[in-house]
Amino acid sequence: MSPSAIRWLIGGILLVLWEVLPRAGLVPQLFLPALSQTIAVAIADWRIFAEALAVTLSEAAVALVFACGGGILAGALLGSVARLRGLLLPVVSSLYAVPLVVLYPVFTAWFGIGAQSKIAFASLYGFFPTLLGTAAGIQTIDAQLLVTARSMGATLSQRLRHVVLPAAIPTVIASLRLGGALVIVGVVVSEMLTSSAGIGYLITSYRTVLDSPRVYVGILLVLLLGVLLDLGMRLLEHAATRHRPSAVPRRAAPAI
């Protein structure tokens, strides 16, 4: 059997187990509600989930602008100025060790329990990885291309516009992909901690009343969102890097 056939088989078996184990009473329904039950709940309550998802998505979109705007700009700066990079990159990767989630209570104390806190936290959560990714990507721009452009008499602004910018596009898209994944996690985590709306809030409220099927629906929706976003970004990436065999080193989103 081919590896991918085995993978489909594994997936299929898992789905069957998901249905059979709880129904047969081998796993408590509280731990794992049957697949069919979970789907039924999702269909019945679709409006509630859709509204929560809309809240989460709109906040994630705003956070994406901040995280990627800031991360890409700062990353481009660090990537292109060697001195700044030498000075700051070690600082940034030290800061990367800090569990940023401890800052969320600071934001709720400052901005209250609303969209602002979530956006602030998610922006920060997406910022550093985007910065590091962009800086690494910018560094891979072939310096020879710049010399070549110069030999053709390209001015500084022409070099930026016609060489650096197109060369940086794959990096920017990769950063958006990474940042997008992270801001969604950031928003959902902050909703789970303290908030009053959004899919993460929904998950936590159902968890406190031990409504497992709805908890599962919420989690599955967040996963789906992540997968769809990743897929979309990948298509974009593919379109933009069609002619470049190995434009940007692949980085998986280190989502926690």
Partner: peptide
Amino acid sequence: VFQDANLFPW
């Protein structure tokens, strides 16, 4: 003309 063709890949 350089040793590497240095064409713009895009």
